[in-house]
Design a protein around this nucleic acid. Structure first.
Length: 480
RNA sequence: GGGGCCGUCGUCUAGCCUGGACUAAGAUGCUAGGCUUGGGCCCUAGUGAUCGCGGGUUCAAAUCCCGCCGGCCCCA
C-alpha cells in the first residue's frame, strides 16, 4: 500500500492546516489574537526536539546561552538608523503601564541586536575577552501586515534562535559567518531539509548588515521559504552605540559583530517536506515517538491476555534500549483507526503484534514513509528497529533533496523563468550582470522575489536583462 | 498596498440570496452500552451552538445594514 502525495502536493496550504490541527501540533486561528498560535503537547515535543538539536550544535561550538529581556527601550532601538528603518513598521510598542502613559515607549523585541550590543559594551571591554558567542531562544514580535500563516508568518515568533557574536576584526567576523553556515547546514541535514545557500542582494540584506547569507528551501507548492539567515554586521551597531574595545597595542576600536537566526519555520518545514496524504512523516532524529506498538486483538481472552503482555514487554524492551515507544493498547478503537491516528502524528515505525506474532515470537514492523512491512524475530528487534530508523532518516532526506534539486533550474532567458515559476514553481537561476537595476527588473518581469546569488560566483552566460556578461547567477522564486 | 471569500454544537457542513413554522438540521467527535477488531465496521442512547463581537433596521434577524475582531484565497 503506497501512500499517495496527491493532496500534499496539489493543495499544500490546506494539507498543512489540517495536519497541524488533526495531529494536535499547533492550534492556530482560534486564540483570539491575530497571527499567533498555540503549541499543543505533541507539537511542543517536536519543537523541543528541534530546539535541543540546535542547542547541542551551538553549545559544542562554543556558544553560550543567555536570556535577554523582552522589552527594548525606544531610544536604544533607534540607535542604529538603518536597523530601525528596516523594522519600524512592524514593531509592537508598549506605551502604557497600568493607567499611566509611559515616558519612554518600550518595544517588544523584533530581534535583539541592539539589546545585546548594549550589554556587550558593558561586559566585553578588552580584546582578550573576544571572540564571544552568545545565543538565546526566545519569542520575538513582528507586527506583520501581510497575511499571516500558521508557523510560517506569525506575529509572535515563539522559537526564535538568535546567535550574536563579537570579534576584533572584520575577517574574524566573516569567518564566524562561515561557521554559522556550517552549523546550520549540519542542522538542516539532520532534519533532512534540503536548502540553497545564497548571498542576499544588497537591496534585501538584513537592516544594518554588511551582508546576509540565507538558507532557502522549497515548500511542496513550489514557493521558496527562508529558513535561516546569517549576517555580517560589521561595525554598524558598535559604532552606532559607540562601543569600543581595547586592542593589544592599547589603542581601541569598534568590534565587529555577526548575528544569525532560525525560527518556527524550521518546525513547519520538517512537518511539511516529508509529508504525504496520511499526514507528516517525522524524521527519526526529532520524532517524539519513534515506534508505536499496536496490538491486534485475538479471538479468545486467554490469547488476548498473553498478547498484551507480549506487547508490554516489547514496549519496555524498546524504551530501555533508548528507543522511545508507545503502546496503544486501548480496545476502544480498532487497529485500523489507530493506524490512521499515528500516521497523522508522523511516527516513523509501527509495530503490530497479533496472534501470528505471538505464535512465531516475532514483531511485524511497518515503515511510515513507504508503508513497507516486514516480520522481525523478537531477539533481533532492537537492532532491526535501529537499522530501519536509520534507513528512514536517510531515505527521507534523499527524497526531499531529489524533489528539491528537480525544482532548481537554470534558464538563459527571462521568458523561460516566467513560465517555469508560474506553472510549476521552484527556484530559477539566471545569469546576471550584478546591477541592482537588472535585479529589480527580473523581480518585476517574472513577478517573483530574488533570493540572491551563489557564494561562489558563477559568471557564465549573459545577463537576462541587459545582455552584458554575467558576474554571477541570480536566483528567483515565488516566496512566502 | 489592492481585490475577493468566509465566521453557525469540540470539528466539518446545511440554512443566509428571497427576514417569520429555526424550538437552528446533518455528519463527525465525545460519554455510556452492545457488536466488531490484520487499514477509519455497525447498532442504541446521551452530550453538545443565546449562529465571532458590538451597534442599527424591523412587529420579527443566523438571515438585511454599519463598525470591529479573526480566518482563507488571488494579485502587487
Amino acid at each position: 500500500m503506497k501512500v499517495s502525495r496527491q493532496k500534499w502536493s496539489s493543495n499544500f496550504s490546506e494539507w498543512f492546516d489540517r495536519v497541524l490541527s488533526e495531529a494536535e501540533i499547533y492550534d492556530y486561528g482560534r486564540y483570539p489574537v491575530k497571527g499567533v498560535g498555540v503549541w499543543m503537547p505533541y507539537g511542543f515535543k517536536i519543537r523541543q526536539n528541534i530546539i535541543n538539536l540546535i542547542r547541542r550544535l551551538l553549545d559544542e561550538t562554543g556558544h553560550e546561552e543567555v536570556l535577554f529581556p523582552l522589552l527594548v527601550p525606544e531610544d536604544l532601538l533607534r540607535k542604529e538608523s538603518e536597523h530601525v528603518k528596516g523594522f519600524e513598521r512592524e514593531v509592537f510598542w508598549v506605551t502604557k503601564g497600568g493607567e499611566e502613559e509611559l515616558e519612554l515607549k518600550l518595544a517588544l523585541r523584533p530581534t535583539s541586536e541592539v539589546a545585546i550590543t548594549f550589554m556587550e559594551s558593558l561586559w566585553l571591554k578588552g580584546y582578550s575577552q573576544l571572540p564571544k558567542k552568545f545565543y538565546q531562544i526566545v519569542s520575538v514580535f513582528r507586527y506583520e501586515t501581510k497575511a499571516t500563516r500558521p508557523m510560517i508568518r506569525v506575529r509572535e515568533l515563539t522559537t526564535f534562535k538568535e546567535a550574536h557574536t563579537v570579534h576584533m576584526t572584520y575577517e574574524e567576523a566573516a569567518k564566524q559567518v562561515e561557521e554559522a553556515v556550517q552549523i546550520y547546514s549540519k542542522f538542516f541535514d539532520t532534519l533532512g531539509i534540503p536548502y540553497l545557500i545564497s548571498r542576499r542582494p544588497e537591496w534585501d540584506k538584513f537592516a544594518g548588515a554588511e551582508y546576509t547569507i540565507a538558507f532557502d528551501t522549497l515548500m511542496p507548492d513550489g514557493r521558496a521559504l527562508q529558513i535561516g539567515t546569517a549576517h555580517h554586521l560589521g561595525q554598524h551597531f558598535t559604532k552606532a552605540m559607540d562601543y569600543k574595545v581595547t586592542k593589544a597595542d592599547n589603542t581601541s576600536d569598534y568590534p565587529h559583530q555577526t548575528s544569525y537566526g532560525i525560527s518556527d519555520r524550521v518546525v513547519a518545514t520538517v512537518i511539511a517536506l516529508h509529508g504525504d496524504d496520511h499526514g507528516p512523516v517525522l524524521p527519526p532524529s526529532i520524532a517524539p515517538v519513534l515506534v508505536v506498538i499496536i496490538p491486534i486483538p485475538a479471538k479468545d481472552e486467554q490469547t488476548q491476555a498473553k498478547l498484551l503482555e507480549f506487547a508490554r514487554q516489547i514496549n519496555s524492551t524498546l524504551n530501555s534500549a533508548g528507543i522511545s515507544s508507545v503502546l496503544d493498547g486501548s480496545d476502544e478503537r480498532t487497529p485500523g483507526e489507530k493506524y490512521y491516528y499515528w500516521e497523522m502524528r508522523g511516527v516513523p515505525i509501527r509495530a503490530e503484534i497479533g496472534p501470528r506474532e505471538l505464535d512465531n515470537d516475532t514483531v511485524f514492523l511497518k515503515r511510515r514513509d513507504t508503508l513497507e512491512g516486514k516480520s522481525v524475530k523478537r531477539d533481533e528487534l532492537v537492532p532491526a528497529i535501529r537499522e530501519t530508523l536509520a534507513t528512514i532518516q536517510k531515505d527521507l532526506a534523499e527524497r526531499a533533496w531529489r524533489d528539491f534539486k528537480e525544482r532548481v533550474k537554470r534558464f538563459e532567458d527571462i521568458q523561460g523563468v516566467k513560465k517555469y515559476l508560474s506553472e510549476r514553481g521552484g527556484i530559477a537561476e539566471v545569469p546576471w550582470c550584478g546591477s541592482e537595476t537588472c535585479g529589480l527588473k527580473v523581480e518585476e518581469e517574472v513577478q517573483a522575489r530574488v533570493l540572491g546569488s551563489p557564494l561562489i560566483p558563477n559568471g557564465e552566460g549573459k545577463c537576462v536583462i541587459c545582455g552584458r556578461g554575467a558576474k554571477n547567477s541570480l536566483r528567483v522564486a515565488k516566496t512566502y
